[in-house]
Design a protein around this nucleic acid. Structure first.
Lengths: 265, 265
DNA sequence: CGAAGTATTGACTTGTTTCAATGTTAGTGG
DNA sequence: CCACTAACATTGAAACAAGTCAATACTTCG
């Protein structure tokens, strides 16, 4: 259940993730490489960080699927976010003392831990590296925004479409996708806990999307057949993922903000 | 509509906010004081930052109420978060190039702007100050988590109760509350856009809470009469606000995480 | 005063939940 | 290798919370 392996995998995974937007300086890369990770394998359905905890380390998901969760009084679970390899789902515990959510595995997963003290030491030495990690938590917040939007304004099918689009792109970004699509350990009930729907509703929505030829979805294997239509249906816009801008359009000059104001109502 | 006033107010407001959790070092305080703010008064219902923008400055709400918003294709608006004086609702634009949401005033508001370049310069000089601002964005993310939880797992009345609890505490934290409660510029329709409800539903829920003697609520003025019961009803737990811990209990030792794991299902 | 925004109320509609039963699949151990 | 089991997926029917539509007050403010 525990192993102190050479942290080569963790380092590489993290590096790939952090540099997906802009390259790190060689000194930052070296600093990053000095971090020591402790890896652990977790079985499926295991809550390994809990609400109220005061972690002294943060984790990196190396393999598998984990979720952030919060429970209602009657025991129902809300999944706040779904994480795939490369994510650091409790980086924020570096600055927020108590956990306000739990972390649990969905399928069997491999998780690597790094002490807060080590991270802080590194950030004190490099403000650019600090900014890179800060940015990660900001993208995370952007995903939350989309969850709020999605669950409030879209109906069941559109929610599912939107969610599948997000997971598709995120898997694509870290190279976890092939001709059969990507693997998502979440059951239909689990997807319901993300989208604020029941398993029944998710099932019926999935059937609709399948009937329209937009997706294939079979026991955790999801394939997007028509991304464009799926995205349209789910009102999906990649902006919030803050991916690298391939064909960087010339930056719009910093025009006077007041010129662009819009009166509402 | 624009004024280059002495930034004394902005500085003080920001300082009060940032030190509400832990004091800043004198050198950090000095650095903070060197920032130059440009203040602007905005009329009600004005969107002054829009989806897709690439801001070169971040703002601090000095006075009034503003919201983060995102629109569905049919024009319906989702309010992602509600902001009160002391909040910096687009700090994240420092590291995320494009806005994935808009910023709009609800009532007439005063907003102060500071260039990203100035913030970056300050953060490069002090990693502790950088961490303090980072933390602000992390609390922000915690509020999003609660919004997701609330809108998915609670029924209309509980959602409203939860939301009022949050706004009550947040106003209290910055001293914007008196014997008549606090002022919230949002209409019932606006509250609905926060909670994923219609104005009709908000109205009926408000009546319920009033009938139970839990709140008073009249044209933007909200008074909590029985916080304890309201919080219970809304399943409200302050953890996620990450307030200073008054009677700091001795930190639980960093017990081996694996000892505390919980199997689910 | 008039106008616009906001709050309130009632009647009707609807998307989703709930409940419950039945398939289906993957994994386990004899 | 098949019976057994648990988890997951699918289906139908009934119930319900919230939405929609629409009419009527109330407030604020130029």
């Amino acid at each position: 259940m525990r192993s102190k392996i050479s942290a080569a995998n963790e380092r590489e995974l993290l590096l790939r993730r952090l540099t997906s937007n802009r390259p790190l300086s060689t000194s930052d890369e070296r600093l990053l490489g000095e971090l020591t990770w402790r890896s652990e394998d977790k079985p499926a359905r295991t809550q390994f960080v809990q609400e109220g905890d005061r972690p002294t380390e943060s984790c990196l998901l190396v393999q598998g699927t984990i979720v952030r969760s919060r429970y209602a009084e009657d025991g129902r679970r809300q999944i706040l976010s779904v994480h795939i390899p490369g994510d650091m789902p409790d980086l924020q515990s570096l600055h927020l003392e108590r956990m306000d959510y739990g972390l649990e595995t969905i399928g069997a997963s491999r998780v690597a831990f790094v002490p807060h003290s080590a991270l802080n030491a590194v950030f004190a030495r490099s403000s650019s590296l600090s900014a890179t990690f800060w940015r990660e938590t900001l993208v995370d917040a952007a995903l939350y925004r989309t969850a709020i939007f999605r669950n409030a304004l879209l109906d069941a099918s559109a929610r599912l479409a939107n969610f599948i689009c997000e997971m598709h792109i995120r898997h694509q970004t870290v190279g976890l996708i092939d001709e059969n699509g990507f693997h998502l350990a979440l059951s239909q009930e689990g997807i319901g806990e993300v989208l604020g729907l029941t398993n029944v509703s998710v099932n019926r929505s999935a059937q609709q999307l399948r009937a329209q030829g937009l997706i294939r979805m079979d026991r955790g294997q999801i394939q997007v057949l028509n991304f464009k239509v799926l995205a349209k249906l789910g009102q999906f816009d990649t902006t919030y993922l803050h991916l690298p801008e391939v064909a960087m359009s010339p930056r719009r000059g910093s025009s006077d903000r007041t010129d662009r104001e819009k009166r509402l109502g």
